[in-house]
Structure formats: C-alpha cells, structure tokens
Design a binder for these strands. Structure first.
Lengths: 192, 192, 192, 192
DNA sequence: GATGAATGAGAGTTCATTCAT
DNA sequence: TATGAATGAACTCTCATTCAT
C-alpha cells in the first residue's frame, strides 16, 4: 500500500468516526503515523481526500451500474443486483459507505464537482426501468421518480446500517423492497 | 417573536446556508443583529440550538404522525397524508428541512439524544402498516423494513428538493410512490 | 493612547528593526503585550498596519507639501522647507521613516494602493518648480525629472540616517543640496 | 552557463518578481528545473545567492567606477559616464537592478557584509569630485554630501524605471541632472 | 553527485467562551 | 440584563533543511 493510500485509509477512519468537519489534517497524520507536513506533501488539503473518495466511489458504482444495465437479465434482477452490490460494499468498507452518505448531505459538499456526478447513477436506474417499460415488462411509470425511490431506499439502508450494524435486517429489507417493487411495478397477470 | 426565537431563526438561516460545522456563534449573532454575548446569555452554545431544532421538529412530526395514525381512514391515505405533510413543511420552511436532513446524517450528530428520538417516527409508520395487516388490508410484510422504505423516500424527497427546488416534481414523485406502495403491498383482487 | 495606537507603535518598532517580511503578528502582539488574538481583533492582518502607516504618512506629507506650496515665498525656500520638514520627522520618528523607505522599495509593496499615492508628492514638487519657471525665477527645465532629483535626495538622506544616525551630516547635506539646486536651476545674474 | 549560474539566473527572476522574503528555495529550484536538493548542493541557503548577487554587482560597479575615475577626462563626463553605465545595466538586467535596489533598503539586508561595501562606491564619486575641486574645476563643496546626491538620484532613477519602465524619460532625467550638476557645482564664468 | 521523500518548527488565522462594566 | 473587549486553544498551511539511496 502506497503512502497516499495509507493516508487515505487513515482519513477514512477518522472522517467516518468524527465527521469530515471535525477531521483535522493533524488527526489524519497522527492516525497514519506520519508528520503533519508529510500529509501536506501528499495532498493539498483534506478536501482533496474527500474529493478523491467521492470520485473513486462514484467510479466504482458507475462502472458496476453500467455493467449490470447491459446484462441480459430481468429488470428486477438488475435492481436486486445493484442493491446487493451495495450491501457487499457496506460490509467490505462500512466506514467508506458511512462517509459517502453523511458528507453527501452536507451543505458544504453539495457544491463539490466530485459529488455532482452522483446524480448520473440515478439516471442509470431510470434507464433500466425505461428499458423494462419499453419491453413491456412493467407498467409505464415516472422512471425518474421511481429511481428516486430506489436511491432513497439505498441511503436509508446505509443509514440503518450505521445506526444498528444489523446486516441480517438489511438483507431482509432488500428482499422486502424488491418484492414491493416487483408487485408494485409489475404487470398484473404475468407475475414479473 | 421572542428574542430566543429571533436567534433561532437567524441560526436556521446560517446553518442551512453554511452547514452546522461552519456556523459560528458570531455569525448567528451578526445575522440576529445582537451582540455575541447576548447569544451566550440565551443559549449555552450553538449545539443547544441544533438540539432545540431537532427536538421541536421531532415533536411536530411526532404529533402529526400520532394524530394521523388514529384517524379512521385507509392506511394508504395515512401514508399519503404523512408524505404531503412533509411536502407542506418543506415549502413552509425549506431551510429547516435542509438542516434536519443534512445534520441528521452527520456523524457528530448521530450521538445526540435529540436526534435519537427520530427513530420513533419510523415505529409509527410501522404501526400504521401493522394495523393494515391486522385488518387484512394489505398482505403481511416486514413492517420495519417497509417503513424504512417510506423514510428513505422521504429523505430522498427532501434531498431532491434541496438540489432542484422543483416542487412539482416532488408532488409527482409522491403520487408515484403511493401508487407503488398501494400496488406493491395491497392484496391482489381488491386493489387496496 | 488607544489600544490600536499601542499596537501600531509596537508594530513600528518591530518592522523597523526586523523588516516587514520578518515581522510576525505574534512578535507585534508580544511587543504590545497583548494576546495574539487581540491583535487580530484590531487588525485584519499585519498588511493592514502597513497600509495604515503608508496612508497616514502620505497624508501628513501631502498636507505639508500642499500647504507650503501655497505660501508666498521663494521656490527655493519651499524646497528647503520640505527637506527640513523631513529632517524633523526623521528625528521625531526615525523608525517610521525607516519603514516607509525600506518597504516602499519592496516588490510586494509596490502594488499597494496605499503606496501608489506617494507619487502625488512628486507632482507637488514639480508644481512648485513649474511655478518658479512661470514666474521666471528659474530657467526652464524638465520639472518631473528635477523633482525626481529632489526625491532621490530625500531617500538618500533617510538611508544615510539609517546607516549612520549622524544628523549633523544630514543638515549639511541639505544645505549643500539646496545650494546646488539654487545655483543649478537659478538664472545667472540674479543669484536666485 | 554553469549549473550555479543557471540557478542564480532563476533566483534573480523569482526574487525580482516576488521579493527576496517571498522567495523560497523551492521556487528557485522549480524555476531552474532542478530538484530542490540540488539547490542545496550548490548553495548553503538562499541568503548565499543574495550575497553573491550583491558581491558581484558591487564588484562590477566598483571596477567601472575605479576605471572611469582614472581616465583623463572632465569630472563632469565621468559622472555622466557613471550614470549612463547604470542606465545600460538597467536595460541589460532590469531584474537584477530591481533586486539590488529593493533588497538594499531591507532592514535585514542592512547588516550584510556583502552590502556594506556599497558605501565604497560613494567614496569614489567623492574622490572624483575632490579631484575636480583640487584642480579648481568646480567650486569647493562637501564632497560626501554631493556624492549622496548622485547616489540618491541613481536610486530614484532605478525606482522610476521599476515603476514606469520608461527608459526615454530616464535618459532625459540623466541629462537634466548632469546639467544641474554642471551649473550648480561649476565655477561661474567658465561654464564647466 | 543527484534526487525524492521526509520532517520539525513556526506563521497566520479562527473561534468558543468568559468577564468586567 | 446587556455588551465590548479579551483570550487561549486549535487548526491550516508553509518552508528551510536533511537524509537515505
């Protein structure tokens, strides 16, 4: 692991625990066991780290979303896949997930470029739903509004995880959500 | 409007614009056009204001939720009523809504007592759903998980408002969500 | 003496001794025997002090120059008056004179607004000379170029004072300079 | 051009632009396109560069002054020659001239050995004047004080150049100054 | 000799909070 | 009760300088 990666890892730990605004460059440096000035040799400031996190996290999600969108597979399994992808990620890097959620809402972050890309993810969900409508797998609906539901659920999932750390419940919640979506959007009679 | 209320109103303005962590007692005092020390005569610190906001906002929501829960009315209209209640509140006090959403996610706030109560709201939704199940209006489901969906959607709604300020779209999204819920949870055949 | 004036006096001491660039807000605060934050309550930064010094010094000089320009008196006595005015000032506030000279040359100061006004002083000298030409007291010459000579001499005077602290020599130098000017500019035959 | 000369050239650029105190070893290294540590292999610190500049500049001036002092030529042409020598130098290396002027005034530099030699230049001018007096070319005067005038004018010239970059005006100013000197110091009747 | 990386010391600035009046 | 002023503790960031390779 490169020094930059070490610093980033330390930053993730601190930011997840104390929040970005209470994270000081000094705390990160201490956690990474480097002098403060070494921190500044590697990053212009702590903002840069957050931008890095947002950017790489966005890319990871984007790549997965686009990939799954193009699979030959039922719309419903795609949404399910995306939700489960996130569940995996939460388990692998719970701190990172926490940060992305918490800081995304922050007024000071809402103007970040690195954050503005996240809205593209919603568009991919919308595209998946539109495809399903075009193929008459689900009844016509407002796809933007529906993808909002999916995203809201995702965030609620992560928030729930932060608060309860209960993964089983999350799995159940996902299944429950998918069933709701299937029944709510699907065309009567064909069960899809 | 009492002095305390004036100060609180000033604080809401600043916190919504700059985020709680970038809000200083001094900025609030300046916005409220009072000397800094008068601020400290009325509040122990800026944390207290945030707690006040959380507490009163929780109470307002709680009162409404409990009230609507006890109405004699279809489960579905109750959920719809709650969502529309929030839509009204967003319009009336957009800055307050922004703060509650943004700061609720903040790791430093997650330990606040004033915030922990918010989970009770979820329980009321769950209770409304349970009632509907008991009365065989909807098919059995995990009510906690489902109320998570409602709350996730609510937050997504507010976030969307913050980012786009487009209220029409929100109304559409609510209708879309309610339809999904009705179809997804309702028992086949009775359309409820 | 107000607190601000105390701080300014301390700043003058430090800047004269160590140069503006080696002057830190902390050193000024220590000299003024106040906490560092009190310094920042009274000035936005150390630049502001320098600007204040430049501005008030310019004003003092400007007022004197304009005043003497309008006296009914030989051109030659006016120039002499200005030089002696500076000699008095150097004696009264040698540190201030040092600062104005040293920092005026500084590349970082050359862009200051508060400094740019100093060129107006040169214009007043030029005007005094022009008057003398119009009244045929001195032979025609390039007044801007000549006022440059006066100013160069003034700065040299201050520099000499900084280096040698020998006031007697300065007085002699002034007399010598005035004689040179009188002889050099005056019209032959009338001795003025 | 040797590596040391390259570094010095880079340093001159930076110091002239940003002032010595805002010049960092790092900036010089970057401008010279060498690693920072190479800078420290060639100079003990940035002070050494400034000393080098002062020393070589002094030497260049000293050599010229001494040389011209010994020519068989009118005193007046010697002074004129010196002034024109400086005008040439300003044109050739404006940045260097800027630095010598600006940093010479700096209080931190006033204690430099490399700088203290500059006062010797004044003595040469004084010697030229004394010679002229001895040879009864000019009327007796305080030669130290008069050489102060010459030096003040020189600095004013360079300062004017820094501020206006107008070389034509400088040439005029020199001619004007020489005329003043000739008339002011010369013995009446012989016009010298 | 050349070089990338490391690092301690310090400068500039902010802010929560107190206190005398 | 109201208020201007004071203050210490933190935090961000910079830079001269060294050192291992």
């Amino acid at each position: 692991m490169s020094l930059q990666e070490q610093i980033k890892a330390a930053a993730i730990k601190i930011i997840a625990r104390e929040g970005f605004s209470h994270t000081t460059a000094d705390k990160i440096a201490q956690e990474a066991q480097i002098p403060l000035s070494t921190f500044y040799d590697n990053f212009t400031d702590k903002e840069e780290i957050l931008d890095d996190l947002f950017t790489s996290e966005f890319q990871k999600r984007y790549d997965f979303y686009v990939n799954i969108k193009n699979w030959h597979m039922d719309w419903f399994l795609k949404i399910n896949g995306i939700l489960n992808f996130h569940l995996q990620e939460i388990q692998k890097e719970p701190e990172l997930a926490t940060i992305i959620l918490a800081e995304r809402m922050n007024s000071h972050c809402r103007e970040r470029r690195s954050l503005s890309k996240f809205s593209q993810l919603s568009s991919i969900i919308a595209a998946i739903l539109q495809q399903a409508i075009d193929e008459q797998k689900i009844r016509p609906c407002n796809v933007e509004a529906t993808s909002l539901i999916v995203f809201g659920f995702l965030d609620a999932l992560i928030y729930e995880f932060i608060m309860t750390k209960n993964l089983d419940q999350l799995q159940q919640a996902i299944d429950n959500f998918c069933l709701l979506l299937k029944n709510g959007l699907g065309k009567f009679g064909d069960g899809s």
